[in-house]
Write a protein that binds this DNA or RNA. Sequence first.
DNA 1: GGCAAGGTGTAGCGATTGCTACAAGAGCCG
DNA 2: CGGCTCTTGTAGCAATCGCTACACCTTGCC
Lengths: 186, 186
Amino acid sequence: MANPIKKPTMTKDSLFPLLAAYVLAEGLGQASLRPLAKAAGTSDRMLLYHFGSKEALIDDLLGFIARTYASTLDAALAGERPVTRGQVVARILKHARSDAAQPFTSLWWEIVAGAARGEESYRAAAQAMMDVLLGWLEGQMPTADPDPEGGARYLLTLIEGTLMLAAIGHEDTAHEGLLASGLLPS
Amino acid sequence: MANPIKKPTMTKDSLFPLLAAYVLAEGLGQASLRPLAKAAGTSDRMLLYHFGSKEALIDDLLGFIARTYASTLDAALAGERPVTRGQVVARILKHARSDAAQPFTSLWWEIVAGAARGEESYRAAAQAMMDVLLGWLEGQMPTADPDPEGGARYLLTLIEGTLMLAAIGHEDTAHEGLLASGLLPS
DNA sequence: GGCAAGGTGTAGCGATTGCTACAAGAGCCG
DNA sequence: CGGCTCTTGTAGCAATCGCTACACCTTGCC
């Protein structure tokens, strides 16, 4: 019943950044307990002690990553409000293609795949991250935009399609599609 | 040096449909040799005999699935040529959301995730399937369309973004995005 | 018939998986 | 001090992984 009797040298919160770094670098497919533990400087035994099971660990970790995503976005996408929808799209795409965002982009498609397979925590994490991005888009829509809410959703759809095509090596197709959309200056 | 000395009761080509059915139902993550063999009515031993290694098996199987995708699309999407771009989008989305296409849609995101991680055969399969879809789109663009090639790429991007959002439970967002695009009748 | 070669089953190997049993250290409260 | 709970390490288990060694059977050719 009593709470903290001993100072733990290692808590969930201190583990999350290291675990997330490993998963971002190696992918969820490589996220077995022993490699994860090694990356976090602990043992599989302790990971299970803290999280109860691997499934719970992944759930928590996806939540952490989704939360981290929000602050990362804010920090990376600061700047004055764009004037056109095309500038909004260009800013997002430039960020998504940056080296800093690359590990996250790889992980993103694994999360989508898990969500598509019905894994609930994957779906929750994916939804949370899309909510963040959608919120950012809504806040960045040009002040003169006739339909900021619908426009943000339209741009989100287009952006995610672009990123998917880029992920499979169809970036040219995506680029030509964006040109044809009239959003980007030719 | 000589070729077929004995009639094999089981060839690669006779295995592909059963293997593909298993992967479509269970996902690539569950595609271990023994379950695959069981689904195909053979043994892990024989799968390795035919394909050499699991990696080669998956490579071949992804190729088969990509090839199958083409004929499936043709069969499912027959019909008279649409008059508007919106009708093209609506037809694809209706098909993608059908029960028949659901297993494939789940598998699709696993393939994308593999491609994003740099797996070459995943990327090849994903590119092949997008080529097929793009080709179909180009052939279905309205005859009066001012820019069929660019328009097809634009629609492809929008469609894939919509499917991704739907896969993670953001179908409402995608639908509102499509409405705001002006392609669909409200 | 004999022989070589392709095809197939059985058994198993070493590695890795998630997880657990057991014991021991560390700090608090009485 | 004595005990109590929290924390941690060591070992190990049953299952599964991809893959292989070995033996056997069939089949076609000479």
